[in-house]
């Protein structure tokens, strides 16, 4: 094979390698979601109430403590309540879960995130949460009519109450 033919053939091989490579590095398009769908994201990052009461330490148990701790008059538990969450859309329960507190002693915050793909259009949204096992039912409630636009991302989050963004 003479040089000219060989270099021409090499050019063809380079093209056969790089042209498909350039194409598949951004094409064909991938359809991730249909056009008439919207997304509702629910994200809660909240510390449940402490479980149990503080106990006063007096008498015998007080006397057993080292001198550096004699000022302490009560001991408080660290464990927190899990969050009970419920999300109802148009009267149907979309999500219900108990979110445990983080940490080895269950004394950290509870975090949850859920993503829902919903048909665009008007909906009735209810979110209910209990963050204290001493309380029956839900001590946090949110209810709102929403109108989701196609491809819209709506976020429901919690900070001293639920809110929609």
């Amino acid at each position: 094979m003479n040089k000219l033919v060989r270099y021409s053939a090499q050019a063809v091989f380079y093209a056969l390698f790089f042209v498909p490579l350039a194409y598949v590095s951004h094409q064909p398009n991938y359809r991730y979601m249909e056009d008439d769908i919207a997304v509702l994201k629910v994200a809660v990052r909240h510390a449940g109430e402490i479980i149990g009461e503080c106990k006063s330490i007096v008498g015998e148990s007080h006397g057993m403590r080292p001198s550096s701790m004699v000022q302490a008059v009560e001991v408080c538990p660290r464990e927190r309540s899990p969050l009970e969450l419920e999300l109802i859309l148009d009267g149907e329960t979309l999500y219900r879960a108990q979110v445990a507190p983080s940490g080895l002693h269950n004394d950290g915050i509870s975090s949850m995130y859920q993503r829902f793909e919903l048909p665009a259009g008007p909906h009735h949204l209810q979110i209910r949460m209990n963050d204290d096992i001493k309380v029956d039912g839900f001590n946090w409630q949110f209810e709102q009519d929403i109108n989701l636009q196609p491809a819209q991302v709506m976020v429901a989050s919690f900070k001293e109450g639920f809110r929609i963004q």
């Binding site: 991938y30 991730y32 979601m33 819209q152």
Partner: peptide, 12 residues
Amino acid sequence: DMTITEVGLDWI
């Protein structure tokens, strides 16, 4: 604030 419907992907 908007979700993706269609995206050009690097398939490699």
